[in-house]
Design a protein around this nucleic acid. Sequence first.
DNA 1: GCATTGACGAAGG
DNA 2: CCCTTCGCCAATG
Length: 126
Amino acid sequence: MKKENPLKKKLPDTAKETYSFFADVYDVVRQIPKGRVTSYGAIAKYLGTGSSARMVGWAMNAAHVATPKVPAHRVVNRNGMLSGKMHFASPTQMEELLKKEKVLVENDIITEFEKLFWDPAVELDL
DNA sequence: GCATTGACGAAGG
DNA sequence: CCCTTCGCCAATG
């Protein structure tokens, strides 16, 4: 069952399969509990690592138009750094959102990232 | 159609 | 331990 896709307006035939990847990424990110965070690599791994973490980040770029809105602010790199904060409406938006969820951010790095880390491959237990 | 880039990550020096 | 290089895969120039 497909839902309305954010990029369906473009939807190249070559990317048809790739599209499932997008949907999966969005679905996983939406399942991230409040106050928790995960990494691009973790998501990629959960999806089978066959796609590489970069594709996750790339998918996030399109997540801005995904419905419902994907909490992309809960996704950071393996370093726990807010690498994509500059892609939000405001460079501080990501940080603000995280702090609202009791996620402390210091110097663009999530404090105790290891403790707040939410691994879909573990939590969702495949 | 080839070259560069990118919200990443792991490995090598 | 810090910095550089390679790999991934799709998009964009």
